[in-house]
Amino acid sequence: MATPISSSSRNALLPEGGQTFYNNIPPRHRLERNRKLSILFKFIQLMITVACLVLFSAGGQLFTDIKTTAFTYGTYGAYIVIPVFLIAGFIIGEVTPVLLVGYNLFGALLFAFVGSFGIDSWWGVQMDLDHISMAKTTVIEHLNDMKLMSAILSLVNAVLYAADTVLEGVILNDNYTRN
């Protein structure tokens, strides 16, 4: 039960727990980043990116466009290095919400592009293999399948980065509206 108390110019509501809410309005729940959950989320994204890089290193030989290959390696390389520093920042308590929202949004877009490039390239090689009557196309098929798996994992990572963007954006919005 709450006991109303009056002080000079404000009315306050004093609940049994001892907290005081001015003007009889309890504060809205304030969202804050859960550091352990953020570290786990970034670690999962990092491991998926490492898996994408390993699979693409084997299957990426089938890419014919050097710009697409460079873009893919650049995306994987950047998103292996940066999360390591973000995880270290989470561990020491560093707070960079605006930067993190932009980073996650950009990561979602980059991984979506890389995944779509990989699936498009896989499809092109599959179509070419259908017209070749070689008996030993298994190596090419194996490399092509590795490239496909890398593309699928890239799309999964894009979804994870998009979800992380939404979560960090809600936390950022809540922090700015409360301050």
Rank of each mutant, 00 (worst) to 15 (best):
L167M: 09
I80L: 08
V170L: 13
T177E: 15
G169A: 15
T72V: 13
A2E: 15
E32A: 12
E168L: 07
G18S: 07
A70K: 06
I91N: 00
T165Q: 08
D130F: 00
V81P: 00
E141P: 02
L148H: 11
V125M: 12
E141N: 13
T3R: 08
S133N: 14
P4A: 13
G118L: 03
N23K: 13
F56H: 05
V139Q: 02
A51D: 05
V125C: 00
G115H: 04
H29F: 14
S8F: 06
T137A: 15
F111C: 04
I152C: 07
I140W: 01
I92L: 10
D128M: 09
I91D: 00
L31V: 02
L100V: 07
H142L: 08
M127H: 09
Y161D: 05
N157M: 09
G18W: 05
G89T: 06
A88D: 05
P4V: 15
Q45Y: 01
S6C: 04
L129E: 10
A70V: 13
Y79H: 15
M1L: 04
I91H: 01
M146S: 08
L55A: 02
P27V: 05
I87F: 02
F43C: 00
I80E: 02
P97G: 04
F113T: 13
E32I: 07
I82C: 03
G77V: 01
L86C: 02
A163C: 08
C52W: 00
F117N: 13
I140H: 01
L46D: 01
L167D: 15
D128N: 14
V54P: 01
N157E: 03
R28W: 04
M1A: 10
L62P: 00
K36I: 08
S154H: 07
F21M: 06
I171D: 06
